[in-house]
Design a protein around this nucleic acid. Sequence first.
DNA 1: TAATTCGTAATATTAAAAGTTACATGAAAC
DNA 2: GTTTCATGTAACTTTTAATATTACGAATTA
Lengths: 146, 146
Amino acid sequence: MKRDSRLSSVLHALLHMAERGEPMTSETLAVCMCTNPVVVRRTMGLLRDAGLVASARGPSGGWQIVADLNSVTLRDLYDALGEPTVFAIGNRHEAPQCLVEQAVNAALDDAFADAEALLLDRLGKITLARLSADFNRRYAAHRTRA
Amino acid sequence: MKRDSRLSSVLHALLHMAERGEPMTSETLAVCMCTNPVVVRRTMGLLRDAGLVASARGPSGGWQIVADLNSVTLRDLYDALGEPTVFAIGNRHEAPQCLVEQAVNAALDDAFADAEALLLDRLGKITLARLSADFNRRYAAHRTRA
DNA sequence: TAATTCGTAATATTAAAAGTTACATGAAAC
DNA sequence: GTTTCATGTAACTTTTAATATTACGAATTA
């Protein structure tokens, strides 16, 4: 099953944008995200709607982070992307007539709901600032080795 | 994103099989699972490989539960189905060169691993016997109302 | 006004899952 | 032992959701 990698993708883009101070074009971001400028615009557009980044047209335009890295969590990004489906496993029908299916769904729904709550809670505790610091730590270690 | 409903599906089938004592054909199961006999054979075949059900060919053949309902958990079914991907959200690359991506993946992987562990732990605590009891409770309540 | 860049609609491609067809294999009943 | 029923499985088709692409309009800068 193909997984939605937009969260990972926008994170990647945001950290690159944080390193740079100036705007990055959709084209530039597309290269570093291994995708297409239009896809970048569509995805970053969702973050803009959530007030996390800003876009500007014309020469010297592009995308920039406007939110405080300390206050933006991965949960915020998840929400901005439209709260995509978390699980690749799910029930067959939403409103089953069959009593067997009702029993099955009730049991599964509980377990999945708890796991989802745990995951989103975790995402809510990771800030962009922390990831940026993590990156810089790795970068320093990398330069030491080289 | 389309979700894998095989777990929900085989559960449904197993509970129906538990209610009946005798073998059920792929065709019968296909109807109650809203699918196709060949898909049923493919899926139930995985459960057979795990020793949970048995199949018999020829007249009066079909599928039957052979495991003890008290000892089979939803986790066992999950395993039998080949431990399908739990999350619909994931990283872009598995082995990224980019240090930014490494930082991103490390953070995400942790959160997802913990949520997955919680889910599988929960599934490991739900037995088929309990689901069957749950179904019978619902059935009794339904008959009372009717 | 020319160059650049986003915004977005329309379309195409891709990849994974599910469904289907077809037929071989094996078991039971008569 | 022949007929019937049912699984086993390979090959192929369909479906569907995501992603990618093309194309062009709108806005901005210089």
